[in-house]
C-alpha cells in the first residue's frame, strides 16, 4: 500500500458517497445516468467475487463491501425510490455496445482462462468504459449540475492516482499487471476532456455547460 493507492481508493470512495448524498439530499437523480450506475454495480459484483474465495486484509474486505453496498444503494435510489426523477429520456446510451465487446475481450485477453479470472478481467475492462453513458448524457443535455461534476472529478482522480500507484509499484515492488494498466490508461483518458472543463469552468465558479 502506498500513498497514491490509498488516496486513489479514498477518492473513489468520495465519488461514490458524493453521488449517494446528492441523490439522497435532493431527493432526485436528475442528470445521473442510471445505466452507468448499473454498469458500476456489475463491475463491483464481478470483480469482488474473490470476497468468497480469498482473504487479503481487513481494509481490502471492508472497502469491497462498502463499494458493492453503495453501488447497489445508488441503483436502488435511481430505479426504485426516486424513479420519478430519473431522466430516462436522456439516458439513451446503448450499453450492449459496451458489455458485449468487453465480454468478448475478457474471454480473449486474460491472465488465466478460469471463470473467476475471466469475470475479474471483464470487470476491469467494463470499468474502463462504464462512465460513457454518463458522459453521453451530459453531452446530450449540454450541462451538468456542479455536484455531479464533483462526483466525476473524484471518479477520474481515483484512476489517475492508480496510474501513479502502478508506476510506484513497478519501481519499488516489480509489480506489473498489463490488463489493469492498459484499462486504467484508457479509463483515465476518457476523463481528460471532462478534467479540462472542470478546471476551466467549475473551479472558477461556473456551471458546466457545453456550447450548443
Amino acid at each position: 500500500m502506498n500513498i497514491f493507492r490509498l488516496t486513489g481508493d479514498l477518492s473513489h470512495l468520495a465519488a461514490i458517497i458524493i453521488l449517494l448524498l446528492k441523490i439522497w439530499k435532493s431527493r432526485s437523480c436528475a442528470g445521473i445516468s442510471g445505466k452507468s450506475q448499473i454498469l458500476f454495480a456489475m463491475v463491483f459484483t464481478t470483480r469482488y467475487l474473490d470476497l468468497l474465495t480469498a482473504y487479503i486484509s481487513l481494509y481490502n474486505t471492508s472497502m469491497k463491501i462498502i463499494y458493492i453496498g453503495c453501488s447497489y444503494a445508488t441503483v436502488y435510489l435511481i430505479y426504485a425510490k426516486f424513479k420519478a426523477t430519473y431522466d430516462g429520456n436522456h439516458d439513451t446510451f446503448r450499453v450492449e455496445f459496451l458489455v458485449v465487446p468487453v465480454g468478448g475481450l475478457s474471454f480473449l485477453v486474460n491472465h488465466d482462462f478460469s471463470p473467476l479470472e475471466i469475470l475479474w478481467t471483464f470487470s476491469i475492462y467494463l470499468e474502463a468504459v462504464a462512465i460513457l453513458p454518463q458522459l453521453f448524457m451530459i453531452s446530450k443535455t449540454g450541462e451538468a449540475e456542479t455536484i455531479t461534476t464533483h462526483y466525476l472529478f473524484f471518479l477520474g482522480l481515483y484512476r489517475a492516482l492508480y496510474l501513479i500507484n502502478w508506476v510506484w509499484r513497478f519501481y519499488f515492488e516489480g509489480f506489473f499487471d498489463m490488463i489493469a494498466i492498459v484499462a486504467g490508461v484508457v479509463q483515465t483518458i476518457l476523463y481528460c476532456d471532462f478534467f479540462y472543463l472542470y478546471v476551466t469552468k467549475v473551479l472558477k465558479g461556473k456551471k458546466l455547460s457545453l456550447p450548443a
Binding site: 470483480r47 474473490d50 474465495t53 480469498a54 486484509s57 481490502n60 488465466d112 478460469s114 500507484n165
Partner: peptide, 10 residues
C-alpha cells in the same frame, strides 16, 4: 497456473 491469481487492489 492453477492457483487463483491474487488481486490485492480494488
Amino acid at each position: 497456473g492453477t492457483e487463483p491469481l491474487n488481486h490485492d487492489e480494488l
